[in-house]
Design a protein around this nucleic acid. Sequence first.
DNA 1: CTGAAAGCGCTAACAT
DNA 2: ATGTTAGCGCTTTCAG
Lengths: 355, 355
Amino acid sequence: MQNRQELATGYVERVCSMITIYDLARITGYSAPTVSKALNGTGKLSDETRKTILAAAEKAKYKANVTARALTTKHTKLIGVILENTVMMRGFEHPLFCGILDTFREEMDEVGYDLLFMSKENKNGMSYIDHCAYRNVEGVLVVNPEENDLEMTKLAHSGIPCVSTNVIIPGVCTIVTDSAAAGQVAVEKLLAAGHTHIAFIGPSADKNNPASKERYEGYCEALAKANIPYSEDLVEYCPDWLSKSGYEAARNLFKRTNSVTAIFVASDLLAFGVMAYCHEVGKRIPEKISIIGFDDDRAAQFTSPPLSTFKQDTARIAQVAAEFLLQRINGVPVPDFVHVPAEYISRGSVAQLKK
Amino acid sequence: MQNRQELATGYVERVCSMITIYDLARITGYSAPTVSKALNGTGKLSDETRKTILAAAEKAKYKANVTARALTTKHTKLIGVILENTVMMRGFEHPLFCGILDTFREEMDEVGYDLLFMSKENKNGMSYIDHCAYRNVEGVLVVNPEENDLEMTKLAHSGIPCVSTNVIIPGVCTIVTDSAAAGQVAVEKLLAAGHTHIAFIGPSADKNNPASKERYEGYCEALAKANIPYSEDLVEYCPDWLSKSGYEAARNLFKRTNSVTAIFVASDLLAFGVMAYCHEVGKRIPEKISIIGFDDDRAAQFTSPPLSTFKQDTARIAQVAAEFLLQRINGVPVPDFVHVPAEYISRGSVAQLKK
DNA sequence: CTGAAAGCGCTAACAT
DNA sequence: ATGTTAGCGCTTTCAG
């Protein structure tokens, strides 16, 4: 206990006794502004002065204090991250979001930016905009906002630089997987395996979430290209992205029709539910029914059979997001929309149809 | 383009034109310090003054600026988070870490703290301690540091308040699942199902990572209690927590012995590998071999058969971590170690052994 | 090229 | 009970 108190005190002292530019000024005999200029490479200083000051800073292990700097410059080198726990799935646990955040952090770290979680409705009743102002956040990565959230819309229109990696927000640069292209590929793979009665299962299209909508569009387009007439009977919408909904969608689908030999499911999680239903009713995969999912969830390679699916390029999405957010912060125009291709991963859930 | 420029400018203006306590002072006719006191509830002010000022602040939508406040108070209301991408598994993608972080964030949000990712070896070559000082972080949540990391050790000894939720760090309060108790339960479940030749598969015990070690100890203890002699042949260590290692461990185990009818595997991910091996060699689960995993990974309910496992109480771990970190920040002593119980989840991977 | 002065927004210590 | 003064650490004019 005594020990802990001492530690705590030690910390305060350490922080308070941090070396400042005034210390360096005293040490080197120059003034504080000169030290500042030397440290930042700004202003006009003689090479010698700069060298002297830099050496002294190094020796004294001087570290700038962003808090103080930010007060004058307004540059906090802070990026806000919006990642809400929606009904869809708890924030961090979503496979896509985690991958994006991981790489985004690395990219931002490279250029000296730190990541801070934004929150809405926190203790102080702050909105996103309030929170951004409160922390002087320089830009925001929108990974997963709540659906149709007014605060989010306000933030998008506030002029605070934002990029979005999942949802389309008018006025905000959005970077997402090219789901339409992937949807086409999915159907083409199934067509190539001899399937013609191909179903689609996915959440009903939310106009702001391109994922399900584009996957569905890709499905339609591939069918059209192959001259296979579209049938409403083969499309089953579900209310969300949960496995349970996939299970129910499969039940509904098979209640309606028995001709289906293949399904393109808009996500692995949904596909797991579909597979569970198939197992339950003895519909063997892939012998009786072929399935393609989306996301390459950790689980996908361990289902039985392993699930053929699409891997989103989260690293690429994050890199582009980081690049464009930085551009945006620096006042450089960015595109409204960027598509990043997904990769098809062939496993054991698709069978060649016997003629 | 023009549009974007305007937006960016709009943001700068907005930030710069934020209302300050001086504005409130002017509006209300009081002085800045008085406004400050009213806002913070400090000092001695008449009720009326306070009310007037608070009303004016509300009306003007005044929001404090932490950056400025922190400069004088040293209280940034910032908590650092250490979550490195170790070889073990990429940072955010680990099921346990994500859950912990999610709840921890909510808890801290309640009391006005924001979360910031700490990084080591960033552009400026800052250590954890440097980074903490640079951002004036008030405390640190250590979720997943690199193994035997000197910088981490230094941070732990720096006096900066820390709590750890995965690894034991001398001098730092650690909150983890009671893996030993869970390990015992696992073996007891298998014993109850009639198994006596029970194997253990898990990473070799790292002295700082209680997870594998404690699960192994629980395994041993349950065996001892049941008077079943310990056999080295039934224990297979693996180098890490990856599924691939589980696969190889299973192969090694079965190469050595054929009497095993049940395995307690230290994690679901490893268990997936074990299951994959079993499937491959036609060893039916659970008919021929029963398996219990650990973590309740998203995948666990979708393997074939669904995997019986333990669910760590990440929410509880995070709550305790948040509580103790706040205590520690406030100079209140905290325990060195807290165990949180895990819950056994029975699914289809354990069979009653036929006599 | 360098330094003096001023200010970012807030709070602590002291006067009044 | 309220105001004055000063300072947190840094940067940005602007003189010299």
